[in-house]
């Protein structure tokens, strides 16, 4: 098993699938000649040429719609949207066309298209380049949403998304492309649905996804060492659908839950997980579930303000301590 970077996992998935099937194509801003803002399509233009590795104009709704239309007749496009903030512009095509076409055509047409896009706060990118949008995507009927927390998932989820007959939105993170991790040497398909127990524990479940899984792991470490609290970390790599069974199973074991999201409340992964806990295992709870989330502000530029706006592992630790009456 080789250790590679998150972007390398994404690049490898593209390369393998494009080598296998001539109808797998990729498109987006600067992905071809320039090699991709996050290097996720590095080397593909040279290998597969301009007909299959398409540098698009800066027309997010237009090129997303073009990808969807191509997917109607058997093409498998992988669309990179440079920042999830720009995906707002493409939502008309993503939601009105890709997500709904199967239903409104009575199953005649499907849109097997993959959209990948990084969200999240990086380094002082300001209000219009720092948004998280998973909460918007996860509420759309007909759209799958997955969000990789490590290189193995980045590789395996994209592989499965390309093969899926449904449209899939892959929520990546600006700060994770250079993260290293082990990825199987052989071909690997990560399931698009479910969740993963990343660290086993008995006293509280920390639900995370994407970058917040790492806050949860760090928090679990601190809780174990300094407070003798055994935290279980559950990675919700699938946000749509959320893994009801996995959520129920873990909370039924630990009886306490904290959900960590970088997205701002109200409305989000946290509120949905809490709703599922209420529906599935309310009477298993020893304490009311808590969510850790960003402040409801457009992301500020000033670094101190920026850090104050988003949570981190310390906020997760504090939320757990409150549950145990220790803070």
């Amino acid at each position: 098993m080789a250790e590679i970077m998150y972007w390398e996992g994404i690049q490898r998935a593209h390369d393998e699938e494009m080598a296998r099937d001539p109808l797998v194509i990729c498109m987006g801003e600067d992905i071809g000649v320039a090699g991709g803002t996050y290097k996720a399509t590095k080397g593909l233009y040279e290998k597969y040429g301009p007909l299959r590795v398409i540098d698009t104009p800066i027309s997010e709704n237009g090129f997303s719609g073009l990808a969807i239309g191509a997917s109607f007749i058997g093409v498998r496009p992988i669309v990179e949207i440079m920042s999830v903030n720009f995906a707002w512009l493409a939502m008309d095509q993503m939601f009105n066309s890709a997500a709904k076409v199967r239903y409104m055509s009575g199953g005649q047409l499907t849109a097997p298209v993959v959209f990948r896009s990084p969200g999240g706060t990086a380094h002082q990118l300001g209000a219009q380049h720092s948004a998280r949008m998973e909460k918007v995507f996860m509420g759309i009927a007909g759209l799958r949403v997955v969000t990789p927390s490590n290189p193995k998932q980045a590789y395996g989820l994209l592989k499965s998304a390309i093969r899926s007959d449904d449209p899939v939105f892959i929520n990546e993170h600006e700060l994770m492309y250079n993260m290293k991790g082990e990825v199987p040497d052989e071909e690997y398909f990560h399931p698009l649905e479910g969740s993963e127990i990343t660290r086993s524990g008995t006293d509280v479940t920390l639900f995370g996804y994407n970058i917040t899984v790492h806050w949860c792991l760090k928090a679990a470490e601190i809780l174990a060492k300094q407070y003798d609290i055994s935290a279980e970390v559950v990675d919700l790599y699938s946000l749509a659908p959320l893994d009801r069974a996995g959520i129920k199973k873990s909370v039924s074991k630990t009886h306490r839950a904290v959900i960590a999201e970088e997205d701002e409340a109200p409305v989000g992964v946290g509120s949905e997980v809490i709703a599922i806990i209420n529906e599935e295992c309310f009477f298993e709870l020893d304490a009311a579930p808590v969510r850790v989330h960003s402040a409801l502000v457009p992301q500020p530029y000033n670094h101190k303000l920026e850090m104050a706006a988003i949570p981190d592992h310390e906020d997760v630790v504090n939320a757990v301590l409150k549950l145990f009456g220790k803070a």
Partner: peptide, 22 residues
């Protein structure tokens, strides 16, 4: 298909064209 967002089919048509091209 028939689509109910005015102008929505334009890029879909281009995508079908792209598929034919490929």
């Amino acid at each position: 298909g028939g689509y109910a967002l005015v102008g929505g089919p334009f890029p879909l048509a281009a995508g079908i064209g792209k598929g034919i091209q490929l």
